[in-house]
Design a protein around this nucleic acid. Structure first.
Lengths: 193, 193
DNA sequence: GCGTTCATTGAACAAATGTAGAATCAAATG
DNA sequence: CATTTGATTCTACATTTGTTCAATGAACGC
């Protein structure tokens, strides 16, 4: 069996490891990579610092394990509705940004290793968007869309001292709809002018 | 005279202090607050670490002095051209973001003190934009505009591994024009539906 | 010219941090 | 029950970092 009875050594370890990962995610999210100490993570997980090292090898490795859990937003469906899909994904992020994504975002600005990991994720996301945009400059349009999404997320969830932090998601989405339509529009079906 | 002859003690001090501030700005910009060490700043300025402390008192104070130099973008002119002004300001930021602004941006995500300082600056900027928008939800629109600007700046100058990093500013601006128009538009003069 | 001021340096300290290894104690195994 | 394995903790170390303080030497005022 891969699921031994609770209380067993293997199960206990799995639980402890999960607790450490949770505490680490929380710490990296709120404090960023540099300000997060192994001792603090260990303490939050109710565990000794040495154990964290024993299980994860190093702080960098622990960090990598945390951001490995960051999901890449999925785009699917007909290209005509690209704008609406992007808006829908953004709406979800307005309600509650996945902690891992924000962790990544915050840490990539201070931690070189996080930067490359995050860049990869962002690139994947942009590629998905670009695929859904029927235009010669689809890549740039996708990058702009991604940048806007990023800016909105950062303003709302990280900076916080902002009108956006408390705004009604639906209102934000409706204000951004023309934006996204003009960026994701097929040439000829796009905005005015 | 407030400008004594060159080589004088006062002048020498002024120059040294400026050199330290420059080195600090550069260091905070590229490395963020936490990863920037006083020794590294001092070394880059060709000076001893003790001198930095002697002049600026503490790392926090040095940081404050650096971000005090961050300019707040100015908005002026008739509200009808609000969108074009925002785009013009963004165009400048695309060419070369002021180092101080980016320093602020990067550091505010890791340093609590930087966060409040930056929030104040952003709030001033948003207030200026909001003034130029004749709409009931001007504040939220301004916040979104500010967030978009932030997202574009971060993507281009901080993340870099992005289509935006190498994109032609004019093309970016033209793609964003419908966006900004729809957000800064007077009700009735805005985008389609 | 002489004593003072001040820019600047060098050495050193205390605290924090990532990390390593020995020690401990319960669970697994025979 | 005896032995071993592995989860967990304790102690300690080396390094880094912000910070302090005494020492030095050149510019300044008299």
């Amino acid at each position: 069996m891969t699921t031994p009875r609770p209380g067993s050594r293997a199960e206990q370890r799995r639980r402890t490891e999960a607790r450490i990962l949770d505490a680490a995610a929380q710490a990296f999210l709120t404090a960023g990579y540099e300000r997060t100490t192994i001792r603090a993570v260990a303490s939050a997980a109710g565990v000794d610092a040495g154990l964290v090292m024993h299980y994860f090898g190093s702080k960098q490795e622990l960090f990598r394990r945390v951001i490995d859990a960051a999901p890449v937003p999925e785009m699917s469906g007909p290209p005509e509705q690209a704008a609406e899909q992007i808006l829908a994904a953004l709406a979800i992020r307005l309600e509650s940004e996945p902690a891992a994504s924000l962790t990544l975002l915050r840490s990539m600005l201070t931690n070189p290793e996080a930067a490359s990991a995050a860049s990869a994720g962002i690139a994947r996301y942009e590629a998905q968007i670009a695929e859904a945009i029927p235009a010669g400059d689809a890549d740039l349009r996708a990058a702009i869309i991604s940048a806007i999404t990023l800016g909105i997320s950062v303003s709302r969830h990280l900076i916080k001292a902002d009108e956006l932090a408390t705004a009604d998601p639906a209102q934000v989405i409706s204000l951004l709809r023309p934006c996204m339509r003009s960026l994701a529009a097929s040439p000829g079906h796009g905005g005015p002018s």
